[in-house]
Amino acid sequence: MLSPTPPPGTRVLVTGAARGIGRAVADAFAANGARICVLDRDAVPEAPEGWLCRQGSVAVAADVEAAFAAMDAAWGGVDVAHANAGFSMNKPTTELTEAEWRQTVEVNLTGAFLTAQAAARRMLPQGHGLILFTASLFHAVGGADRAAYAATKGGVANLARALACEFGPAGVRVNAIAPGYVETWLINDLIARGRLDGEALMRRSPQRRLVQPAEVAAMACFLASPAAASVNGAVLAVDGGWTANGAP
């Protein structure tokens, strides 16, 4: 029977892991015996002993390369690269500045590409590996005031599909997770400040609740497991049925 968890000792990079989904993913892999490297613009609070923690931007190739180089030196390479770092932009399109558009593209899409590119340069010669992206429910649906965010997350989903086709023959898989509204500090803050209608979110979700970070992390660990060996080029929703629900 194929194991649904990653093998102990798996070498994992997670970007945007200081908190939220990224931290939950890093913690879940660590709980399964993985070796963890994180890259975030912020310091990682209470990082466990043995983690490699690098501060920097995923939109800067040198910062991404430095994180992978640290893994090369410590562990001889990488098995899983999760390009999770993202930037949320919720603003009317007519008020969106060029700088805000470019910032969203640079972090969400360029950062994902640079992470995948650096990972592939290591995984392709070794003949195995998983590149994983964090997309969003907005890769599949639209939303008012989400032009920049939805455009980049749609790009991330198609980047995963394209790279899966390119890298698959060499044994490297590429997938994306598309979370719905996840109960993180950011969502809770937006609800508390009235920027999001929490009750409306609950009504739209068939499960009538927010997704938990650990549930997204569980999907990431499954995708890195032997049981997911034929899952390639997939964009997998972890949204409580949000995108399946056509009702307003």
Rank of each mutant, 00 (worst) to 15 (best):
L137H: 12
R121S: 14
A150N: 13
G111N: 07
R204P: 07
L132R: 05
V172Q: 10
G142Q: 09
G143I: 03
V182I: 11
A119V: 11
V172S: 00
N188P: 12
L210H: 07
G129R: 04
E106L: 15
S136Y: 09
Q207L: 10
L223C: 11
E199C: 04
Y181R: 05
W185D: 15
L186K: 11
A135V: 02
I187K: 08
L210R: 03
P206G: 04
R173I: 05
A150H: 07
Q117V: 05
A140R: 11
Q103A: 15
E98D: 12
G129K: 05
G143A: 14
R122P: 13
Q212V: 07
L163I: 12
G171E: 06
G154D: 08
A217S: 02
A220P: 01
F167Q: 00
I177N: 01
T152M: 01
G198R: 02
E106P: 08
L130P: 08
P213T: 02
V174P: 07
C221D: 06
G142Y: 12
F113N: 01
A227D: 06
E100N: 11
A140W: 00
A192F: 12
P226Y: 07
A120D: 02
V211G: 05
Y149R: 08
A214T: 06
A99L: 12
V172D: 03
A227W: 05
L159D: 02
K153N: 07
A218E: 06
F113E: 07
I191E: 14
A214R: 08
V216P: 00
A162D: 06
A160P: 13
A217H: 00
R146M: 15
F222I: 12
C221T: 13
I187N: 06
A160D: 00
M219G: 09
N188Y: 06
L190Q: 15
V182T: 14
A192N: 08
F138R: 04
A220Q: 02
T110M: 14
R208W: 01
E106N: 15
R208D: 08
R209D: 09
V107I: 15
E199R: 03
G129T: 10
A224L: 07
D189V: 05
A224Q: 08
V105L: 13
C165N: 11
I131Q: 00
L132K: 04
D197F: 04
E106I: 02
F113I: 13
A217R: 02
D189M: 13
L124G: 04
L96P: 11
R146L: 15
A151Y: 01
A119Q: 10
A218H: 03
L109V: 14
V216D: 04
E215V: 04
L137F: 14
P226E: 11
G111T: 06
V156T: 09
L130T: 05
R203L: 10
L96R: 12
G154L: 05
L186R: 14
V172G: 09
S136M: 11
